[in-house]
């Protein structure tokens, strides 16, 4: 698909605690599936972050990527923790390490890692990330209170560049739309957004630049959302934005160093 690039915003690799990695234990497995489907690049988190913890996951993710990704097609996602426990370095140093290791975005698992996602815990890091426009993944599945936790977080950090993921297969417009309407830095990845003609509706209402292709690998495959974006009914220019250009832009505009 040489005239049509896809950059996957939602992938994970590594061995999950409950097994069932479906070939995603290694970066090689992911890259093979990307090739089979015609996906060019991917933003990749660690599949076992919730159980194994941020410290292990951040390090092991790099090992997994570096073992197989000879063409630099994968960009990492690192997990953040509260600043007060000295588990992560100060923001400037942390971001510099991200840049040095081809890590482009952040995520958080406050319920699994037992901390409160608010200004008191990660205010300094989130303010710095917002100022540098570093994308942060945020999802109802990992926040205390589900969507309420997402809304609370966005109210605390309204300037953040956020990618809302894992929106759930039950149509989530009643939650997605208020976020897109109220927070200009909010984007949505589409791996679980299966609403008929919904991609075109969101693009018309809030702009195609707010939407990102994501596969949800290894829970989901790459191809289904590719086809629904390709035939969303949007002009091809907007389709290309959603398929890859928006994520490229978010990663490029992030000022890690």
């Amino acid at each position: 698909m040489k005239d049509f690039a896809f950059f996957d915003a939602q992938c994970a690799i590594g061995a999950p605690i409950l097994g069932n990695a479906r070939g995603g234990e290694t970066a090689a497995g992911l890259l093979a599936e990307m090739d089979r489907n015609g996906v060019d690049k991917a933003l990749v988190a660690h599949a076992n972050t919730e159980a194994a913890g941020a410290i292990f996951a951040n390090e092991n993710l790099l090992e997994l990527i570096q073992a197989d990704d000879v063409d630099n097609r994968l960009t990492g996602v690192w997990t953040i923790l509260p600043a007060q426990c000295d588990e992560l370095p100060p923001p400037d140093e942390f971001f510099a390490r991200m840049a040095a290791n081809r890590v482009g975005a952040l995520n958080l698992f406050p319920v699994a890692h037992r901390w409160q996602a608010c200004r008191l815990t990660i205010g300094r890091l989130m303010d710095a990330a917002a100022e540098r426009r570093i994308p942060v993944f945020l999802g109802q599945r990992i926040m205390d209170g589900g969507w309420r936790g997402v809304f609370d977080f966005m109210r605390e950090f309204p300037a953040a560049t956020v990618i809302v993921n894992g929106v759930s297969l039950w149509g989530a417009d009643r939650n997605i739309r208020p976020l897109l309407e109220n927070f200009p830095g909010c984007h949505v990845e589409l791996s679980e957004y299966w609403v008929p003609e919904g991609i075109a509706d969101l693009a018309r209402l809030y702009g195609a630049e707010r939407l990102l292709y994501g596969s949800g690998y290894p829970r989901f495959g790459h191809g289904s959302t590719m086809l629904s974006i390709r035939h969303s009914g949007l002009p091809m220019e907007q389709v290309r934005q959603i398929a890859s250009q928006n994520l490229e832009r978010l990663l490029t505009q992030a000022q890690l160093v």
Partner: peptide
């Protein structure tokens, strides 16, 4: 389950299966 799920999404899942 239409109107729950997009036809292209589901057809895409069949077509891209190995």
């Amino acid at each position: 389950d239409m109107p729950w799920f997009d036809e292209y999404q589901h057809v895409g899942g069949i077509l891209s299966a190995d």
